[in-house]
Structures are given as C-alpha cells and as structure tokens.
Design a protein around this nucleic acid. Structure first.
Lengths: 183, 183
DNA sequence: GAATTCATGTAACTTGTTACATGATTTA
DNA sequence: TAAATCATGTAACAAGTTACATGAATTC
C-alpha cells in the first residue's frame, strides 16, 4: 500500500507521467523506498480504477503519447486519511540482508568479514557525501520560509539519513575492532 | 533468496520442523528478518526439490506427524557459497514507511506529528529494553570461549540493534525539538 | 557505434501476507 | 470458556523483480 500513497503524495506536488514519477522517486524518496517502473504503471491503473487519479493524453511524435496523471479529490481524501492514521505498531517489518549475513558469519574467515565491513563503511560514506549537500541546499531554501513548506519535512528525512549513516559507520568500525582483537 | 539461506543457516545449527524454524526465527533473526509459516513451508518444499534438505517423519498421536528437516551436503555448500559472495552493492533496497510518512507530513498538524514521533521513541525504547539483557546474556556466554562461536556474531547484530535504536531515538528527539520551535 | 533518455507498457516470476482448515492439549 | 500451543498445510492475493518490446533523439 505504501507505493500507492507515495504516488498520490507526489501527484499532490504536480501532475506527472508514470515515467516522471519514477524519476522523481529515484531522486528523493529512493533513500527509504524504491519501486520499478512496471510497478508504478500497475499501481497507476489501479488508482485510476479507484477514481483516485485521472489522466489526460499529450500526443507526441516519434514517441508514445504522454499520459499525464493528476490526483482527484477522492484521491486526496484517501491520501490525507492514510497520513493521519499513522500505524502504532511500526508496520513494515524491517529486513536487512547485511545483518542476516553477519548473524551467520562464523563460517567466514575473519579477514574476509573485515573486508565486508569495510565495504559497508565505504557505501555509507558515499551516502553521507550525497546527503550533506542536500541538507545544505534544503537549509538555504528554508531560510525565511515557515514550516508549512514540504522542504521542512524533507529535511527531517535527510537528517535521519545522516544520523543513520553515521551510526552504522561507527558500529561497523567497532565490529572491525572486535574482529581484529581475536584475529 | 534470503529466507532460503536463513533456513539453511538455522538447519546448520540443528535439524528442525518448519514450525520450529518459525519459532526460532521469531526469537532471533526476527529483529532484521521475518517470515510467515506459510512462506517457510513453501521454501522448505523448494529446498527439498533442490536436494538441499532432507526430512524424516516422526509420528505423533492426535497431532500431525513431525517432518524434521536436516540440511544436506549440497545444501551446506550452497549456504557457504551464499555467505562468501557478499553483494558489494548493499543489495536489498531499504524500505521505511515511517520515513515516507514524515516526508509527506506537511499535510499534518504539528501537534499530531509530534505524537507520532513520541510513539516512535516509545517503540524504540521498548526495543532497547529487549536488546540490553540479550546483550548481557551473550556476553556472559562468550567468556572464555573463542570467536568461532556463533554467539560472537550474534552479539554483533545485537550491538547494532542497540546502536540503531539509540540513534533513531536521538534523531526523533531532535525532530520534536525542531517542530516545537515553530509550533 | 554504443549507451542513455524518453515513454509507453506486458508477461512471467518470486516473495511476502492473510485467511482458512484440522484437532488434541494446555493455560489463563 | 476462550485462547494459546503444537504441527501440518492450501489458496488467494498483493507487492516487488526481471526481462522483453518499441523507436526516435541525443550524448559519449
């Protein structure tokens, strides 16, 4: 269901094609949710069936015509409803393959496992370097504006990205230390 | 694919029924992976088809007979292979519904959002209280043993649970502060 | 000359969720 | 008396992934 509401939420910003939605998602929400184009198209058809979105066709030459989707009033109501009933139990079960692998790593050479932790740190450092300029940019955009603005909330998620990455890096470093002790 | 290797990994510890696997998972790996019984049974059939597991039947009275699964040699080879080729790109896409909701929260009253952050903090505090005694227990078990032991690796994942929960709590507190500033 | 962008999708598949069914025994 | 535990599963559905197809225009 989450993808459904992401689409409605984004169409609230502006009307878009399925392709646009994919591009938009890849550049924003992708840090904490992802979806394939095929999934987006499928969901758009369902949303249309529900009357939550409408589309108009913009003809193109040499390319398939654009279907520009907009959110309907009913769609907007459904979106707000979803937003308001935040699940109390932290709904989506967390799945983390990296941790599964660590859990079973007794079967791995310590040196090898250390390399994996180092890879992990490298990945997260890259992420930090992506988040930092975004954080700055959003801060600049926010100056003088009040909090009604979406940017304020986007920034909260970017801050979380920063704090998460830093915390993971320091955990991974501790793991490497522990492993080196008993090498 | 991850569930497949979790099952193989657990059967490496000991032979079990599908039901046992579910119970075992719920008490350990559940913090970073979960699966329904129906999914486990389905995967066990597939694994049997692949020759990665075998089972013997233990008859029972008044209850369905037990099917006690063991890992085969081929299964063990497949498991080790999986463990060795750690994906370089941090494979499974992270999905976090809570963050999606925060991203779109401009449509929510600030007071309401603060309540959601407080719920989140409460959840994570509960988690901390679960992890802390586990961490202690594992530390005690580890004394005098060397690192070949699975417990050492399990403890790394528990440490991560602690560090994650603490980091999330402090982020959520900051968010509340930010929101109160502009209330 | 090869890959990427733009824009639509379909089809087949895997994975995860929910609901249902059975039936004795134990616990609250 | 209701529910949880033990133990098997099936069926239907929802969500996510991967591969395929089209075809012009642009960038490397």
């Amino acid at each position: 269901m989450t993808l459904r509401y992401i689409i409605l939420g984004l169409l609230n910003y502006m009307s878009m094609t399925g392709y646009d939605l994919k591009v938009f998602m890849d550049r924003s929400i992708n840090f904490f949710w992802s979806a394939e184009l095929s999934q987006i198209y499928r969901e758009l058809s369902k949303l249309e069936g529900l009357g939550y979105v409408n589309y108009r066709i913009e003809p193109q030459e040499g390319r398939p015509d654009k279907k520009i989707y907009s959110i309907s009033q009913e769609g907007n109501i459904a979106f707000i409803e979803w937003l308001r009933d935040f699940p109390d139990t932290l709904s989506t079960p967390s799945r983390n393959e990296f941790l599964v692998r660590i859990f079973f790593s007794s079967k791995l050479k310590k040196e090898e496992l250390i390399l994996h932790f180092e890879d992990y740190i490298r990945e997260l450092t890259k992420e930090l370097k992506i988040y930092e300029p975004i954080d700055k940019k959003l801060s600049e955009k926010l100056i003088g504006k009040d909090c009604e603005d979406d940017i304020f909330y986007h920034k909260l998620t970017v801050k979380r990205g920063l704090s998460f990455a830093r915390s993971e890096i320091s955990w991974a470093k501790e793991c490497i230390e522990e492993l080196k002790k008993i090498l």
